[in-house]
């Protein structure tokens, strides 16, 4: 690690962390006035009647996160392959084509199961 990288890293991270801290610290500049209405969830001026913040939410979001994990790791596998594609040549290309095809089949299966049908 060069001294240049360390210095710029310390400076950059320092500034980037310091700026939001300063901005958060300006909170004391504003006035203070407590009232009952300010201390309940803001729902466009209506008292919260239907639903709670900790209620159950659609399982679709959870499925999407799992799908994301699979395909994001696929992308991570592809990055080093892409950078060194010229050295790998034809054999590397064929191997990755098989990999892509397998994952594409998986995607078609997932879509045909109706994961993305929001009802």
């Amino acid at each position: 690690m060069s001294a240049e990288l360390v210095l710029s890293g310390v400076l950059f991270f320092g500034l980037v962390v310091l700026l939001p801290l300063i901005m958060l610290a300006t909170a004391f500049l504003g006035p203070r006035a407590q009232s009952a209405a300010k201390n309940e969830p803001y729902e466009s001026g209506i008292k919260p009647m239907v639903g709670r913040a900790d209620q159950k939410f659609s399982v679709k979001f959870y499925l999407l996160a799992i799908l994301f994990l699979i395909f994001d790791i696929e992308t991570v596998f592809m990055l080093p392959w892409a950078v060194s594609l010229r050295e790998l040549g034809l054999s590397g290309f064929i191997e990755m084509s098989v990999f892509i095809l397998l994952l594409f089949t998986g995607l078609i299966y997932v879509l045909s199961k109706g994961v993305l049908n929001w009802r």
Partner: peptide
Amino acid sequence: NKYGLLGGLRAAAQVISYEIPMGLALV
């Protein structure tokens, strides 16, 4: 806040969904 929670979930699901096409375009 239930609107806050829904917004956060929507944003997270959207960002992770589009990170994949973005990553693959980068590949």
